[in-house]
Design a protein around this nucleic acid. Structure first.
Length: 253
DNA sequence: ATGGTTGCAGCGCAA
């Protein structure tokens, strides 16, 4: 069972890349973030590739979706018990796994209202993820968390010290989710750099100036079935690429 | 060099 998360930075602008990715990689489930379109504008062609689609769209900003080769059931849009107008969370049960596609707010700057909102969002997300653990299912909550969990996940930790994406409060929020019982599937990967996002500016990808901010968090049951995880870096190197690469886990289910 | 790039929308904002 292959599950992939990918912030596409506009699904319409990225349509050829998404189609090619589905054809080439054949994931069972593809979790998308930053659709930047409403439900009616979501490309219907993706269904033609053999995927069912659950879409929570929004005009211009945000938007998340679940694509699956398996039937999609029990769809939940938005984090329960969290008043949150932007389309940043969608959850469903598919192929024996409960999955969610989450787009955590960026946070802009530490002094902005957006930063406080980000921390509130993370608190609500953590509470809901804790609730889900009681179901004792295979669960994969994946997406753009907009947090680099440790200095190991940053190309220049000194330059990024206390910058948004790397602040102690954000990292504490992330650790709370792990302490609740989730496993960061990519955390123990060694070898090449683990980055998932490279800024469009300053030739960041060519210099591998990246951060690891896209994560797949696994419930204990899902973690026990984890076979492999990988970042599809080549996708970031394509013409007209998203600034995020797809990130994959394979589970033995 | 307080910059740089992208997407949406149609100007500045968010990232």
């Amino acid at each position: 069972m292959k599950i992939v998360t990918w912030n596409v930075n506009s699904v319409r602008a990225r349509l050829p890349h998404v189609e090619n990715f589905l054809k080439d990689q054949q994931p069972d489930v593809l979790l998308l973030q930053e659709l930047k379109c409403e439900d009616h504008a979501f490309p219907g062609s993706l269904g033609d590739f053999g995927y069912n689609c659950a879409v929570y769209g929004q005009k211009t900003y945000n938007g998340v979706a679940i694509l699956s080769k398996h039937p999609i059931e029990d769809v939940q849009k938005g984090i329960p018990n969290f008043e949150d107008a932007p389309a940043r969370y969608i959850e469903a049960f598919t192929g024996g796994v409960r999955v969610a596609s989450v787009y955590v707010p960026n946070g802009q700057t530490i002094t902005s209202a957006a930063y406080g909102y980000k921390l509130n969002f993370l608190e609500a997300l953590c509470a809901h993820m804790q609730y889900l653990l009681a179901l004792d299912e295979h669960i994969v909550i994946a997406g753009d968390y907009n947090i680099a969990p440790t200095d190991e996940d940053v190309y220049d930790p000194v330059a990024w010290k206390n910058e948004v994406l790397c602040t102690p409060a954000e990292r504490e929020s992330f650790r709370k989710i792990l302490y609740a019982g989730y496993t960061d599937a990519l955390a123990q990967k060694t070898g090449s750099t683990p980055y998932t996002w490279w800024d469009y500016r300053k030739g960041s990808f060519a210099k591998d100036s990246g951060l690891r901010i896209d994560h797949l968090l696994l419930s204990p049951r899902a973690s026990d079935s984890l076979v492999n995880s990988t970042v599809h870096r080549y996708v970031r190197g394509l013409e007209k690429a998203s600034d995020h690469a797809p990130v994959e886990v394979s589970l033995k289910i």
